[in-house]
């Protein structure tokens, strides 16, 4: 079983989490970025920042994960990235 560490609940089975997609650089609120924000999502080969939700406790968090090795580098609450 693959584990993902929730910043509140600690290491949990990754099936308890819902994937909410990459943290987007473009914003749908900016008209000139609308198409970018809607269709052109981040898809790197490397570490990507992404939104996850621990469904039983409804904790929304950010994970930094490598998209080739599937290694989870860090997890933290939004706007509380550890130094």
């Amino acid at each position: 079983m693959k584990l993902l560490t929730c910043p509140v609940n600690g290491p949990r089975n990754i099936t308890e989490f819902q994937y909410l997609g990459p943290v987007r650089a473009a914003s749908a609120d900016q008209p000139e970025q609308l198409i970018e924000a809607l269709f052109y999502a981040e898809n790197p080969l490397g570490v990507m920042r992404e939104w996850w939700r621990h469904t039983p406790s409804n904790i929304v968090l950010i994970a930094e994960r490598h998209t080739v090795s599937d290694q989870i580098v860090a997890t933290y609450l939004p706007n509380r990235k550890p130094a």
Partner: peptide, 13 residues
């Protein structure tokens, strides 16, 4: 699979 990945690994889930 439920999340983005560029690997052909398999999972038990």
């Amino acid at each position: 699979d439920p999340y983005q990945l560029a690997s052909t690994r398999s999972t038990l889930d």
